[in-house]
């Protein structure tokens, strides 16, 4: 059974629907990427999982439980964490404090959790006393992911984690995403860099105008001529 199972989700912000029937599945230890042209509803589809928009039809089942219409704070406690595309760190707080805020809902000894995060992001260990706002874009993205991972989620949602990053950092973020997956976390991410993202993911979904267009393994989608013509620039 899939960890996350979205079926025919319709909805949007306010009254207008942005999603007109999106279905997606994310399995255990799977990296699933959502690609598509601008305005396809990629980020919206992801936000629907996290309870950030009004879902008017369809269902979202996570880990055997129907979470359709739940509030974000309840979804967080259930085991899904979300990293927004922008403003995803506390800029005026140190790296370590960002992680502490990520673990706000957790009680008890957190030293193992910190060890795990600094193990995943060794670059940040030396910068733990720096303000997150003073870091480079790539490192800030790592802080954002680390903050979300502090709650030990089963599923991590990443909204365009490589937007605005140099190719070097893009590779690094993809590598870290793999490391996180290897640590037992499933990942659903939205990507602008469709080619690179499809090359590194396990499976992908191509959305257009708020609905599913294609799906399959990353390699299969890359090889698909129509997908290539539509979204990957030939």
């Amino acid at each position: 059974m899939a960890l996350l199972d979205m079926k025919d989700v319709r909805g949007g912000y306010g009254d207008a629907d942005v999603l007109h029937g999106v279905s997606m599945r994310v399995g255990e230890r799977e990296i699933v990427v959502i690609v598509g042209p601008n305005g396809a509803g990629k980020s919206t589809a992801m936000k629907s999982v996290f309870g950030l928009l009004t879902v008017r039809g369809g269902s979202i089942v996570f880990d055997g439980e129907d979470i359709t219409g739940w509030a974000p704070d309840r979804i967080v406690q259930r085991g899904i964490c979300y990293v927004p595309q922008v403003d995803n760190v506390f800029r005026e707080m140190t790296v370590h404090e960002n992680f502490e805020m990520g673990a706000f809902l957790r009680r008890g000894d957190l030293s193992a959790a910190y060890d795990r995060i600094y193990g995943l992001f060794p670059d940040l260990k030396a910068k733990r006393r720096n303000l997150a706002g003073d870091l480079s874009g790539g490192q800030r993205q790592m802080v954002a992911m680390g903050r979300a991972l502090m709650l030990d989620p089963k599923l991590l949602l990443l909204d365009e984690p490589t937007a605005g990053l140099s190719p070097k950092y893009m590779e690094q973020i993809f590598q870290i995403t793999r490391d996180v997956r290897d640590a037992g976390v499933s990942i659903l991410l939205v990507e602008q860099h469709a080619k690179q993202a499809l090359a590194f993911c396990d499976r992908g979904y191509v959305l257009a105008t708020g609905a599913n267009r294609h799906e399959g393994s990353g390699q299969a989608l890359l090889a698909d001529r129509e997908v290539a013509e539509m979204f990957l620039g030939g």
């Binding site: 979300y82 403003d87 800029r91 707080m93 404090e97 706000f104 809902l105």
Partner: peptide
């Protein structure tokens, strides 16, 4: 303190503070 940090987080980035469960 835990709640002192929560206050700073809310001042810094209210949306993210809410996402963190504050």
């Amino acid at each position: 303190s835990r709640w002192g940090k929560a206050m700073r987080a809310m001042s810094d980035n209210p949306d993210l503070a809410r996402l963190s469960g504050v």
